[in-house]
Design a protein around this nucleic acid. Structure first.
Lengths: 305, 305
DNA sequence: TCAATTTAGTTGACTCAGTCAAATAAAGGC
DNA sequence: GCCTTTATTTGACTGAGTCAACTAAATTGA
């Protein structure tokens, strides 16, 4: 039986968000569409080829009411409907070019609306809000498949993100002191200050605007690529992101003609070591250290290319 | 300018939550009240003695429509309305005993509804969902924000935050390239790596768990304190945070026996320069540079202590 | 001090979003 | 082959919510 305080907190949020959405949704008055119209067109745009009955269920609309909306959309040539070959009773809905234009117009207006709201926020607040939205969605709608993480090159702010998230992680999980964060900052700072795009790279894993992971390749000289600062956020572990990042490093290093990749890790990072081992890295040395407070076991691994 | 991926994530969540609330709100069909009725009674129950005009604004309801609902509630003896002594046009609304009973009945039904949903979740998930709701509320609801920022010493992750937010800010506002972010990372990294708590400090301005500003004092040798990386987030400007941070620096530097504070800034940072001038700093040198791409005018200021 | 304007709330008239029921056509089950 | 169920459509309707005009009270400016 869930704690009453949690329930009341959820209800209070729901009252707040009902108002918040009410404010956002008033904007549809600037278009000829009602909110429900927009929801319908949008859903057809997103899952092109949807079944009308499924649409009514997804959006919790009265089928009779939806039918009228769809009829009007057909008349306005925003969508096309055709009988499902598998079941002549059912209708398959697809968006037309004209409908796609309208869909994009609605999308732009909606984007502008959220942007206007998010632009008033402090740096980090939109990310924190969206990360929280991802959390709620994942809990309340487990069937919704989270979008796959994409991997992209670094851009402004990412190096700072690397420093912040890894600094915080190692402090909280392993009790490492701030010298570690300082080292990460210096390493990452040098990477940017002396960046050689021909032989060095930084990959960022991201989903829905939220950074989830990172890794760098730097030029160690003598044909050796250095794999540094591999990290996957706790919330995104087990999804194969770490492996994807390491695979990118290996492919890049081969492409750039390095003869070997070398990396330093600590033995308590089990998931990372497993990735390295499966990728063919071998352990070449090991040393205990207290560089950041608690005693730890540093390891150097290499992969011949 | 907020990242489009964040905006689209927020919109997707809004579509999902519109449906989720739609499902919850259908439950009102089991009572004689509409959703709007319930929102009205609930809000009067929560802020007993509310002004009718304020209620209409808070709930974004047409005053004519609200008037009819309130009339019906008066007839059903759920609420009482009396003219505001301060303004006879205005009505003060209070809930009656009967209304309170109904308010609690609605509350119970709503609690049961959320409980039914939360009880299907795994252990810890309701807590995680509600924590996420608090996060969203705290960010999006200006009224929920504490007005004042607090200033605290740095902790794990803050240096990364400084690198990220300033790196992004200078890139977006002034077109500086990533070498600036690299420099900030190195400076801040050295600060942590060689930190002398007796003579150096980092202050962070924070509100509601979100960082809003920062500044460092480092030991420049020869009795000179260096003021570095002063920054206030766009969303928090004009609140006096910058001045507070600079004041902290001056007080600390005097306490630690420095003879002078020195700092380097760029002339386009007008607000920062105004703070320095008001604090008594004087301009001692100036030089044009292209360290980070576009040409800029660097300035060194000092304050004798 | 007074007239004009604005504000708070109410009532009349109305629109149309959405619901319910009955209809038709197609599919499924026995 | 017949009965039941499902998908969709259309007719009729309700009532949530909007807009305008009204009254009473407060504010503003001359």
């Amino acid at each position: 039986m869930t704690d009453i305080a949690l329930i009341e907190s959820a209800r209070e949020f729901n009252r707040f968000y009902t108002n918040f959405l009410g404010l956002l949704n008033k904007a549809y008055l600037d278009t000829p569409f009602t909110l429900t119209d927009a929801r319908v067109l949008f859903e057809i745009g997103v899952q092109n080829g949807v079944n009308a009955g499924a649409l009514a269920r997804d959006l919790q609309l009265d089928p009779a009411y939806l039918s009228r909306i769809l009829k009007r959309f057909r008349e306005e040539e925003l969508i096309e409907a055709m009988p499902d070959p598998a079941d002549q009773r059912s209708q398959i809905l697809t968006i037309t070019a004209k409908g796609r234009t309208q869909f994009e117009e609605l999308g732009s207006r909606s984007n502008a609306q959220i942007a206007a709201r998010f632009d008033t926020l402090a740096d980090g607040e939109p990310q924190a809000a969206v990360a929280a939205m991802h959390t709620i969605r994942a809990i309340l709608d487990p069937q919704a498949k989270p979008a796959a993480a994409t991997i992209r090159p670094h851009r402004a702010g990412d190096i700072g993100w690397i420093v912040q998230s890894q600094g915080r992680f190692y402090a909280e999980e392993y009790g490492w002191d701030l010298r570690f964060e300082g080292l990460v900052a210096e390493v990452a700072g040098k990477f940017l200050a002396n960046f050689d795009p021909e032989r060095e790279y930084c990959w960022i894993a991201e989903r829905g605007g939220i950074n989830l992971g990172s890794v760098l390749i730097t030029n160690g000289g003598d044909g050796i690529a250095k794999l540094r600062l591999l990290y996957v956020d706790k919330a995104a572990r087990g999804l194969g992101i770490g492996k994807q990042l390491v695979d990118e490093c290996i492919a890049f290093s081969r492409r750039k003609g390095y003869r070997q990749i070398s990396l330093w890790t600590n033995d308590f990072l089990h998931a990372a070591r497993a990735i390295y081992q499966k990728a063919g890295f071998r352990l070449v040395s090991e040393e205990r250290h207290r560089m950041f407070g608690p005693e730890a076991n540093g390891q150097t691994w290499v992969l011949d290319l």
